[in-house]
C-alpha cells in the first residue's frame, strides 16, 4: 500500500520502498485498484463516506501475504479503524474481509524487523539526521524503537536526538486546517527543536506529518530537508534516490 498522499505527492517514497524490499528479496506488487485507507473520512467523522473506500482497500489487498506501507498512520487506520467502518456498513462480508486483511498490514519498520528480521538493510546515507517518531506509529501501532534501530544501522549516518521527540508535530489530518492556529503553533515548536539539533535532514515514517513539518521549515527558510524513512533505507553508496523535495 503506497498510500494516497505518497501516490499523488511523494512517488519517490513508494519507489524507495519498492527498491528496498526488492533488494531484500521480497516479491513486491502494487495492486492498482488501491486508493486510500479512508482515514481522512473516519477521523473527520464521515463514516458512511469511508465505507466505499474501505471496500476498495480490502478488495485490492485480499490474497497477499503482507501489506506493507510507508505510513504508521495508514497502517493504524487499516488495523484499528476499518473494523469500525465495516461494522457501520452493516455488511457482514465486509466485516469478514476487514478482519482478514487488517492483521496483515504492516508499517515499513515493523515489516523489516518483525517479518524479515533485518535491522541492517545495507543502506548508506552520509548526513546529519534527526528522527521524529510520528504519533500514530509510536502510540497507535507501538513501533517503539524499530525505526531508530534501522537508522542506527545505516552507514555514514550521524543520528542526533530530537528534543521533545515524542510530542505531536501538530498535523493531525483535518486538525491542520480545522484548528490551523494550534496546528501551526505545534509545528513551530517542532521546527524549533529540529533546528536546535543542527541536523540537515529530519526523517519520519509518515509523509503527512513531514508535509506539515516541512511546510513550516520551508516557510522559515531553515534549510532543513524532510525525508521519509524509506528513502534513507533505500539509499546505497551506489545511489541515493532521495526525492527532489527541497
Amino acid at each position: 500500500m503506497v498510500t494516497c498522499i505518497n501516490d499523488a505527492l511523494y512517488p519517490g517514497t513508494g519507489q524507495a520502498v519498492l527498491r528496498l524490499l526488492r533488494r531484500l528479496g521480497v516479491e513486491v506488487d502494487f495492486p492498482q485498484a488501491q486508493t486510500c485507507c479512508g482515514q481522512p473520512m473516519v477521523n473527520t467523522g464521515y463514516l458512511d463516506e469511508a465505507v466505499p473506500v474501505v471496500r476498495t482497500f480490502v478488495d485490492a489487498f485480499a490474497g497477499y501475504d503482507a501489506v506493507v506501507t510507508p505510513s504508521g498512520s495508514c497502517a493504524g487506520s487499516a488495523r484499528h479503524q476499518h473494523s469500525i467502518v465495516a461494522r457501520r456498513s452493516g455488511d457482514e462480508a465486509l466485516e469478514k474481509a476487514v478482519a482478514e486483511v487488517g492483521p496483515k498490514v504492516y508499517e515499513l519498520s515493523e515489516f523489516l524487523i518483525d517479518v524479515l528480521n533485518v535491522t541492517d538493510v545495507g543502506a548508506y546515507y552520509p548526513h546529519r539526521v534527526t528522527y521524529h517518531p510520528t504519533c500514530h506509529s509510536l502510540r497507535m501501532l507501538g513501533v517503539g524503537d524499530r525505526p531508530r534501530r534501522l537508522l542506527e544501522a545505516v552507514r555514514g549516518i550521524r543520528l542526533v536526538d530530537l528534543p521533545g521527540a515524542d510530542q505531536c508535530c501538530g498535523f493531525g489530518g483535518t486538525f491542520a486546517v480545522k484548528n490551523a492556529d494550534i496546528s501551526v503553533a505545534m509545528g513551530a515548536d517542532k521546527a524549533r527543536h529540529i533546528r536546535e539539533t543542527g541536523a540537515e535532514v529530519v526523517v519520519a515514517g509518515d509523509n503527512s506529518c513531514l508535509t506539515h513539518i516541512g511546510g513550516v521549515l520551508s516557510r522559515q527558510r531553515s534549510g532543513v530537508r524532510t525525508v521519509h524513512l524509506a528513502e534513507i533505507l533505500a539509499s546505497t553508496e551506489a545511489g541515493s534516490i532521495e526525492r527532489t523535495l527541497r
Binding site: 503506497v2 505518497n6 501516490d7 499523488a8 505527492l9 511523494y10 512517488p11 519517490g12 513508494g14 519507489q15 519498492l18 527498491r19 513486491v28 506488487d29 502494487f30 492498482q32 491542520a176 486546517v177 480545522k178 490551523a180 501551526v184 509545528g187 513551530a188 508535509t211 506539515h212 516541512g214 511546510g215 513550516v216 520551508s218 516557510r219 526525492r243 527532489t244 523535495l245 527541497r246
Partner: peptide
C-alpha cells in the same frame, strides 16, 4: 488556496507524475 494551510506553511512541490502513473509507465520499475 485555503489560508488555513498556507498562512504559515508552504506546500510541497508536486511531482512530475504520480506513483501510479510511474508504475504503469515503467511496469513497476
Amino acid at each position: 488556496g485555503p489560508s488555513a494551510w498556507t498562512g504559515a506553511r508552504d506546500l510541497p512541490e508536486a511531482p512530475e507524475e504520480s506513483f501510479r502513473a510511474w508504475w504503469q509507465r515503467t511496469d513497476g520499475g
